[in-house]
Amino acid sequence: MSTMDLSREQVAVELDGVAARLRLDNRALLKAVAQAQRVGMVHREIEKHLDVSQSTVHRLLQKAAADPRALDTRPTDIIDQRAAGQIRTEEMMNRLLNWNYTFGHTPTIDGTATDAYEQGSWDDIERAYYRRLLTEDEVSQLMERNKDALERAARGK
């Protein structure tokens, strides 16, 4: 098939898959570098294995140290695995339907709301829907399964 035979939709699906693989690879890189440091590898040793600069290794380690939660698996990883063709829709939905979601909020200090927003794992679901990585039906299923938690979050409890 030549590139002339491809539709915009086919190309868009391919782009979504490439983007998902890129995000997954970047998270895998971050996790691998943090793990290498935990087992005692020095920057130079890590950079040689990865064929990246020492500054890249340093930047990744700073990112992991600044936000250790960045190393945790998130719903977006599962959604990206489906977009990348690594898992089927049924497995993705099973894992997402059984996820224990957290909900974003505005932190307070001494009773005063800050100007920050702390994301929750449900934010991944919303972003994936707006980016068309989840269908309306898939989000509806997730909302139905998490109805009580969503209502509590909406009330701020």
Rank of each mutant, 00 (worst) to 15 (best):
T3H: 12
D5E: 14
D5K: 12
S7D: 11
R8Q: 12
R8N: 08
E9Y: 09
Q10G: 05
Q10A: 10
A12N: 06
V13K: 10
E14R: 15
R21D: 02
R23Q: 07
R23K: 06
K31I: 13
K31M: 09
K31R: 15
A32I: 00
Q35H: 13
Q35N: 12
Q37S: 11
R38A: 11
R38D: 09
G40R: 07
H43D: 08
E45K: 12
L50G: 03
S53V: 02
Q54R: 15
V57T: 03
V57Y: 03
H58C: 09
H58D: 09
R59Q: 05
P68L: 07
P68D: 04
R69M: 07
A70P: 00
D72I: 07
R74Y: 05
T76R: 13
D77Y: 02
D77T: 08
I78N: 01
D80L: 01
R82A: 09
A83N: 03
G85P: 00
Q86G: 07
I87H: 01
I87T: 05
R88S: 08
E90T: 04
E91C: 06
M93Y: 02
N94R: 14
R95I: 11
L97E: 08
N98V: 06
W99E: 09
Y101G: 06
Y101M: 05
Y101F: 08
F103S: 09
F103V: 07
T106Y: 05
T108A: 13
I109N: 06
T112K: 15
A113C: 04
A116E: 15
A116G: 00
Y117T: 08
E118L: 08
G120T: 01
S121K: 04
D123E: 06
D123L: 01
D124N: 10
D124F: 07
I125Q: 03
R127F: 13
Y129R: 15
R132A: 03
R132K: 12
L133C: 05
T135W: 00
D137C: 01
E138P: 02
V139F: 02
Q141E: 13
Q141A: 10
M143G: 08
E144G: 12
N146W: 01
R152P: 00
A153S: 05
A154Q: 13
K157I: 14
